[in-house]
Amino acid sequence: MGIRFAAGAALVLALSGCYAQEMANQDRYEPLEASGLFEDGMASRQPIEGTVARGQLFEDDHLYRGTVAGQPATEFPFEITAEIMARGQERYQIFCTPCHDQLGTGAGIVVQRGFRRPSSLHVDRLRAAPPGYFFDVMTNGFGAMSSYASQVPAEDRWAIAAYIRALQLSQNANEADLAPEDLELLGAQR
């Protein structure tokens, strides 16, 4: 009796478990799920080459490729506000600091672990480079750095470029460029 009861209880538990599983894993795919249907084993299909999804016709060369008339853009494609600058700082800290470090000198943690050291953002060549140049490097990669286009949307790449400009300025500012209240703040910290 005892054994039969225990077996019955176990069966009920097991059956309810199976039933719950069936409901939990229905015949549909989740993002990135594997599939036996296709040769490459992926449920998510690549769009047919040349397909343009709604809202993804990236025809603005300035915004999406950083070029104007085939040359690296010397201007930003939109106005740089304090909000965009803050966004740029945040995105820079997420995606760039691992190699370029907080200041842009190129001594980030991944470089400390053996990655080829990138150029400091404060060398003359890069201080003179137009915003479109930084956008191009982020979009297409440069040297050991791979493209960040899939991780960082175009608008954010511009925001990062703007923040790089601010970083460069921070290391090369003249006292005369500062507003009186900034000078006061600086004096208080000295």
Binding site: L32, Q93, F95, P98, I109, V110, F115, M145, S146
Partner: peptide, 29 residues
């Protein structure tokens, strides 16, 4: 290393799915 979650899980702020990074993201480093 101090990597931010969003370095790899890029979809988390915009999408229902946080995203599993493509192998290319691993290969950045």
């Amino acid at each position: 290393l101090g990597l931010d979650c969003r370095y790899c899980h890029t979809g988390v702020e915009e999408s229902s799915f946080a995203g599993i990074p493509p192998t290319a993201t691993c290969m950045n480093c």
